[in-house]
Computed example of a mutant assay.
Amino acid sequence: MSIATLKDLYIDQLQDIYSADKQSLEATKKLRECATSETLKDALDAGTDGIKQGIEKVRGIIKTHDADPTDEFCKGMEGLVKEAHAHAIDADNIKDEDVRDASIIAQYQRMTHYGIAGYGTAASFARRLGLEDDAKILRDCLDNTYGGDRTMTDIASGEVNRQAMA
């Protein structure tokens, strides 16, 4: 797709978010399988549900603009998923399960921060383009993503990091 206008860039960014969310969904499921803290597992389950909702919402927005959600592959999230594998999912060098839980949170939050940047940018573009319905949906996705990030911070500082130090 040629990008000549802000609208073109907006659609490209939405497709990037769609790809990023699909990749992070699979990684989050794998992170959940590796987690040992029940609180962390529950938060990752909620994260999985939130990512699924984001995928559907972004897919719907893209379709309203007569575009294909799959026209973009997010290389940024691809790298973050590789990092999640290296530092949590497949990290044979992490022997302590509490330390692994701390690493799972770190990797999940890196993916979440990418999502925050994507949703925030897309919502800003939507507002500038006068696409208020899109902007509201994207703002809701952004707020949900922020909420997931705050939950992980709370779990890390309240339970997981303390146990990883023991």
Results as ranks from 00 to 15, higher is better:
1 M>I: 07
2 S>C: 09
4 A>G: 03
6 L>T: 15
8 D>S: 09
8 D>E: 10
12 D>A: 02
13 Q>A: 06
15 Q>M: 07
15 Q>E: 11
17 I>V: 08
17 I>Q: 00
18 Y>P: 03
22 K>F: 01
24 S>Y: 01
25 L>R: 08
28 T>W: 07
29 K>P: 01
30 K>P: 04
32 R>K: 15
33 E>I: 01
35 A>C: 10
45 D>V: 08
46 A>N: 14
49 D>I: 03
49 D>C: 09
50 G>L: 03
52 K>T: 03
52 K>C: 08
54 G>W: 00
59 R>W: 03
63 K>S: 11
64 T>Q: 09
65 H>C: 07
66 D>A: 09
66 D>T: 06
67 A>D: 13
69 P>A: 13
70 T>P: 05
74 C>K: 08
75 K>C: 13
75 K>V: 15
76 G>M: 14
77 M>P: 05
78 E>I: 12
80 L>N: 04
86 A>E: 05
87 H>L: 11
88 A>H: 00
88 A>D: 00
89 I>T: 02
94 I>M: 10
98 D>Q: 09
100 R>I: 02
100 R>N: 05
103 S>K: 10
106 A>K: 03
107 Q>D: 06
110 R>I: 06
115 G>C: 09
115 G>L: 10
116 I>L: 13
121 T>Q: 02
121 T>S: 04
123 A>Y: 06
128 R>H: 14
129 L>I: 15
130 G>F: 14
130 G>M: 15
134 D>V: 03
137 I>E: 00
138 L>T: 15
140 D>H: 13
142 L>T: 01
145 T>S: 07
151 T>P: 02
152 M>C: 11
153 T>G: 13
154 D>G: 12
156 A>L: 11
156 A>Q: 08
158 G>Y: 15
158 G>M: 14
